[in-house]
């Protein structure tokens, strides 16, 4: 059944009917597997990858590295859970290595992102240091290369 997940991870638009044909399962089997995955949180969401650079929308994203003082009994969970609530923050990961938490923040302008770091993040008691790097160009994300789809260039060799 893990194949269903692999297929959906690549293309969330596949319908249960299509998946059923591909895997020689019944449509009902696929539907109930998917609904189980949704219920137990294995499938978290279905989203599209969008290259906003191709639109008029201005968007700035930054990777922010945080050094954090862990809290008694709760480690890094408490601060992580607090950070989740900010809609500007699109990704929160606990890291190994020279810093503790990595955030990805999106805003309309550089200033907006900088303000968020200075006014919201830096003052938090347990955050001891921040380092902000702005994303200049996205080449690949979630395994997908950001490029205009190429035409089928396979030559018409009579094979």
């Amino acid at each position: 059944m893990d194949t269903i997940l692999t297929l959906l991870e690549k293309d969330t638009r596949l319908t249960p009917k299509e998946i059923a044909s591909m895997l020689s399962l019944s449509e009902d089997e696929v539907r109930s597997a998917i609904s189980e995955y949704e219920k137990n949180g294995t499938i978290v969401a279905y989203k599209a990858l969008i290259d906003w650079d191709k639109t008029d929308r201005e968007i700035v994203s930054a990777v922010i590295e945080l050094k954090v003082t862990p809290q008694r009994d709760r480690g890094f969970d408490k601060i992580a859970e607090k950070l989740l609530n900010y809609p500007e923050i699109t990704s929160v990961c606990l890291m190994s290595g020279s810093y503790d938490i990595q955030l990805i923040i999106e805003g309309k302008t550089l200033r907006e992102v900088a303000q968020f770091v200075a006014m919201k993040l830096a003052p938090m008691d347990c955050i001891t240091a921040t380092s902000t790097s702005f994303v200049l160009k996205k080449y690949k994300d979630k395994g997908v290369i950001y490029q205009t789809p190429e035409e089928d260039e396979r030559g018409s060799c009579p094979v």
């Binding site: 018409s156 060799c157 009579p158 094979v159």
Partner: peptide
């Protein structure tokens, strides 16, 4: 000339066709 060649020649001159003709991996 191969029959498949003839068919591919027809196809080459057409637009907006969904082809399931090629004999090579995608």
């Amino acid at each position: 000339s191969s029959g498949i060649r003839k068919f591919f020649d027809l196809l080459d001159n057409m637009k907006d066709v969904t082809a399931l003709t090629v004999g090579q991996p995608d």
